[in-house]
Design a binder for these strands. Structure first.
Lengths: 182, 182
DNA sequence: TGACTCATGTAAGAAGTTACATGATTCT
DNA sequence: AGAATCATGTAACTTCTTACATGAGTCA
């Protein structure tokens, strides 16, 4: 259950509404642990019921609810952080590479070029965030900078990989796969 | 629904039993699209019912079932490959980095060193696979080699990142976070 | 006043995990 | 004979996505 720890961790930093947390998930956390509002709101309600977070007295405009951490919540994230991490990564983009041979060469090259373009755009976005140096104030933490640097480095690796891969395929004989015994 | 396309794509290459497919998911595909046998077997049954794969006449020992692609199945993977890819990546390891400031400095350094170690071991494993050059025969395809190269490059980037990050944290003042207003 | 963003929810269904269950073959 | 691996399934539960639903404040 990583979502709850992502939420708890964010609330360790300060008070936020569900909406603000959702926005944060759309930005920095989108590349680590994506989540929609329809998952965030019920989870916040559950965390509150379990006493891992609490709702602060003051309600904002439009009935905005503000949440803050509790001692038990803080303890729970730390406990979780000390657990053996689950290093599973799920990436449709990588799965597609395995199956790329099912397209013909020109299509595969185009596909890889679009991948390169996507990663270049992502890299530009991450570099911008790195320059701004601030995202909801959380950037003050070195750990935020570490996560950003992880994104920068792996994205750079992907840009270079995709450009290399497009070249390799373009200059290869490529295996025609249209036929095959059925 | 990426699992079905992963299965269809594999069966485009040849005939396999559910068990063989599962083994393949444990190896090369574990870092792209992990799946357990409890998800694979029902999905194969569904694909068969829908006519996207078929069961070959011959049954192996221990009632082993062998599946093969159908024309409709092949068309379906290709259609999917031409769709706009979903580039979402979900990684608990990256999420943890964002929350690392909740640990104290020594714990954070140890954590990052363990990450470096894990990625070094993974890199060694991938390099071994690259040397063997064969995995269920699928390695003949350039696209398999592309996927492997993607793994090698991103894993190398992660090793270097983790080593850099451990150093950075070790030599930083780090933000003591034990307290905080609650 | 109309469009947009803020703000919070619920419901139905798909996808994924963990646990339960069973039997055949092979290898030592 | 016993252990390990091959081989295939189901059930219960959790997690995630998509769609539905609604209302308040802000800005042009």
């Amino acid at each position: 259950m990583s979502l709850r720890h992502a939420l708890l961790g964010h609330l360790s930093w300060g008070r936020y509404s569900g909406y603000a947390l959702m926005k944060h998930f759309q930005r920095s956390l989108a590349y680590a642990w994506p989540a929609r509002h329809s998952q965030i709101y019920p989870e916040l309600a559950r965390l509150r019921q379990e006493g891992l977070i609490r709702q602060t007295e003051d309600e904002g405009p439009r009935r905005r609810k503000l949440y803050a951490e509790t001692e038990r919540g803080r303890d729970e994230v730390r406990r979780w952080l000390r657990e053996e991490p689950n290093r599973t990564v799920r990436s449709e983009a990588v799965l597609r590479i395995f199956l790329l041979w099912l397209l013909d060469r020109d299509e595969a090259v185009e596909y890889l070029q679009r991948e390169a373009e996507y990663y270049r755009a992502l890299l530009a976005e991450l570099e911008e965030i790195a320059d701004e140096g601030d995202d909801l104030g959380v950037a003050k933490h070195l750990s935020y900078r570490l996560a950003l640097e992880h994104g920068l480095r792996t994205t750079r690796a992907r840009v270079q990989w995709a450009e290399w891969a497009a070249d390799r395929v373009a200059s290869s004989r490529w295996s025609a796969s249209s036929g095959g015994e059925r």
